[in-house]
Design a protein around this nucleic acid. Sequence first.
RNA 1: GGUCCCAUCGUCUAGCGGUCCAGGAUAUCGCCCUCUCACGGCGGGGACACGGGUUCGAGUCCCGUUGGGACUACCA
Length: 458
Amino acid sequence: MSETITRFAPSPTGHLHVGGARTALFNWLLARQKGGRFVLRIEDTDAQRSSDEFTRAILSAMTWLKLDWDGEPVYQSQRLPLHREYIDKLLSEGQAYWCHCQAADLEERRRKALAAGGKPKYDGLCRDKNLGPAPGAVVRFRGPEGGETGWNDLIKGSVVFDNRELDDLIILRSDGLPTYNMAVVVDDVAMNITHIVRGDDHVNNTPRQIQLYRALGAPAPYFAHVPMILGADKTRLSKRHGATSVMAYKDMGYLPQALINYLARLGWSHGDQEIFSLDEMKQVFDLSHVGRSAGVFNPEKLNWLNSHYLKETPPDELAELVWPYLEPKGYARPDGAAMAKIMLTVHERGKTLTELAEKAEFYFQDLPTLDTKDAAKILTPENKALLREWMEVLRRPLGGGEFEALLRRVAEEKGVKPGAAAQPLRLAMTGRTASPGLDDILSILGPEKIRKRIEALL
RNA sequence: GGUCCCAUCGUCUAGCGGUCCAGGAUAUCGCCCUCUCACGGCGGGGACACGGGUUCGAGUCCCGUUGGGACUACCA
């Protein structure tokens, strides 16, 4: 009847990537669903590769995704004394021993064993020598010699390792720092973590960690190993597959709820349902419905979700989200009502905030940027005559729904189809041949701007 | 090489022995709507990797093959 406590434990050696975001999400979901705690632990023991800048970047990405954590983040580098304490305990109990083997020798022996068709594991040379500390020495865990170590994974089911496959892993490096496997176990024990949800790439660490739990006399938590996210070529997702960092998606104009929804559905399902709010997920999330196989990251489906959420966003909110992409260009911002109206005309026509900004840009320009191909095609003498006609007709403001009748009248007078009569006007207003509806555009622009834009083409 | 994991439409998946000549979503194609582009609506094509078992019956259970992936550090 203990409280559910989950954790997300990134190492600050890079930005938060989509795979990390997904495991963070699953941990968050599990804790929030059970009314438990979700804690953040920054695994910064590798001083060489870790940086505060990445720590800050990870925290802000989590915040953007609305994955809130309980309490202050825990920094692993500040817990070294605790790690040492546990290592000393294992040492004094004979569950760990000093090893004087040098890295270079080890490598040589590993190479030979491999060449002889053996396994590249530690040969146990110092295991029974009863050595003490020495410069350059490390501490190894004394693993069981036979038997099996296994667990019932909440995602993968029963997983079992033969203990003979596992060698005596180093728990204290020669520089006095604990190794990853030792530090995680000590911290997870000390932080009372009940469920460890992490990437698939950790399954091979799990049996060793379980042995450490046992040696420490602590009950092992539940483990759930989430499959990897792959790129289109089915190899592990990396930079060469395009953007992998969460904040890169923010910059490209994706909504956090779209990314979250996408990541959740990549590997997890709830019947045929595709759309989930964070709140809804919290209700129905279930580790047993997380798939066991790796999934390919599919930007097209992310796009679909993003446009879905874009369409759902109220226009005034959308204006706030889109404006940052327009502001740097120096445009004057129209009043709230006008902005909302503009948003309404574009919000179904783009997949990202950047696309929306791009599609709305003509409203803000003094004169729209002319698409040269479209212009060349449209600006015939006949169409210029049409534009003159439009200029006459559009001198006064249009009433609601009036454009439709006007378009038919102009088309009939000029003996062309309505579509053909509209295109020159569209080009004049927007600079291209694809745009929102002209009735909306015309009423937003108003007679003065309309006249100016037509004149520019005559 | 060894260990571990995985295998349903291009992609994400539903399916927990019979209701599946396999359902949804996305992508794609076609039609409709229409001042363009979108949106939306309707429809089409598209998958149980292969081989053995078990069973009255297998996408669903077992074994093998093949194919992917992860790990194999004094990195996390």
